[in-house]
């Protein structure tokens, strides 16, 4: 069995559900606006939903042919268990969490220089990228350069 078959099995089911929801929503758009369906805002979404349904059904058929439904489900569960125990996956999750912290918490609430300095110092320290002194110097240089070029030269607002 192809090692990706269980992903294909799960994603094709997800995509088929998405396309069915889109078909209903696209039809509703046509009803809301009125007039001919071909001129309604739901026309292209409807075409795309049908194409997505067709292609995901092909993917589902292929994954079942290559492994069978039960075997695919078991393969997916086994992969999830391996992923949970993987060191690289854990490190990526930590990295993603810090990026999310900067994106959703620090950048919208604090001035650019402060949020970016905090993010860079924290991330480089956690990753043990360099010594603390170098870390502070790199952060100051990067934040200062971006601030100088965008805010002072081009007068472009920063987050």
């Amino acid at each position: 069995m192809d090692k990706k078959t269980h992903f294909d099995f799960v994603t094709s089911i997800g995509l088929m559900i998405l396309s069915l929801v889109m078909i209903v929503d696209s039809y509703r758009m046509g009803v809301d606006v009125g007039g001919a369906l071909y001129a309604s805002p739901g026309m292209l979404p409807m075409v795309l939903a049908l194409l997505l349904l067709l292609t995901s059904a092909m993917l589902l058929k292929r994954s079942i042919r290559n492994g069978g439904a039960r075997q695919n489900l078991a393969g997916f569960v086994a992969w999830f268990d391996i992923f949970r125990k993987s060191r690289m996956a854990r490190e990526m999750m930590v990295g993603a969490l810090i990026l999310a912290l900067y994106t959703f918490v620090l950048a919208p609430r604090l001035p650019f220089w402060m949020s970016t300095s905090m993010f860079m110092i924290l991330l480089m320290a956690i990753l043990k990228a360099t010594s603390l002194v170098k870390n502070l110097m790199i952060t100051a240089l990067v934040v200062g350069s971006i601030y100088g070029v965008f805010q002072m030269v081009f007068h472009v607002p920063l987050p």
């Binding site: 990753l127 990228a129 971006i146 472009v156 607002p157």
Partner: peptide, 23 residues
């Protein structure tokens, strides 16, 4: 890459923001 990538991420964020100044 552990030094470069945080810098690239900040640049990516700035690049995304300055087009329409939208968080």
């Amino acid at each position: 890459s552990t030094i470069l990538m945080p810098i690239v991420y900040v640049l990516c964020m700035v690049g995304a923001f300055v087009i329409s100044n939208s968080i």
